[in-house]
Design a protein around this nucleic acid. Sequence first.
DNA 1: CAGACCTCCTGAACGC
DNA 2: TGCGTTCAGGAGGTCT
Length: 279
Amino acid sequence: MPELPEVETVKSGLEQVALGREVASIKFYRKDLREKIPQALIKRILVGEKILSFSRRSKYILINTSKGTVISHLGMTGAFLTRRSSKPEKPHTHFVITLKKAKGLDDVFLHYVDPRRFGRLSATETSAQEHPYLASLGPEPLELSSKKLAMHLFEKAKGRKVPIKNFIMDAKIVVGVGNIYACESLFKAGISPLRLAGDVEYDEMLILAKYILQTLKKAIKQGGTTIKDFQNADGGTGYFAISLKVYGRQDLPCVSCKTPISQIKQSGRSSWYCKICQN
DNA sequence: CAGACCTCCTGAACGC
DNA sequence: TGCGTTCAGGAGGTCT
């Protein structure tokens, strides 16, 4: 389940093997993931074109050529696997990008595998930022200082009665804070996930912002192991490298006060927190 | 308009 | 052992 740090790692891995290379072909094994795949448009943008850059916006990976941008999301279970053959070897391989053979370089085939098909694949020949997937997204936390992020969150939270946990997971407010990072950051900041966003004081928001950034940055740093394993990646390992203090730890003792960790549901999502340490 | 809840999907982890 | 059930989660959609 790729979170933002893992997506960053996947992007780096793709850069290592495919940046600057020409796409020879793309073969689709499905006509849809979450939505219908615009196959003809994607072919127009990729086939016969050099990959000028990869970029990331929120948890989307963007593949840029002179013809436009292909926009992909890994959902929960998606992965780009680098292979030496075009033949799908894993179940749920939904498309394969073949890079043109080049002197002195290995043959490379990018296999997109996604068992649950929560992933997405789309494209645009114009501005990627105006694509519906990206148009209404909030800022990238990693491009902000903790103070800027805190001010942004504090302003947006004014008058909001949504729980702070749901608030920081809302991609329209800020991108890249998935369930794991929301739970962990709130624990470190000592803020209950049940608190209403509008009731969180600026000072608390600053601490929360610091921990969100710290957790994301730490995970990206440790995601390096995934880059190393990318050639035979089978789903990514980097994200398990961060030590989870509350996520998934229901009934286990709080690392700080030993009180059993509570699990609750918020808008259908599990939240874990310490009733004593988080207020 | 804001907020809660539903939906998509498969496989892992349970329970009987 | 082997079946059925539950649950996880990103993000858009729908309902209140």
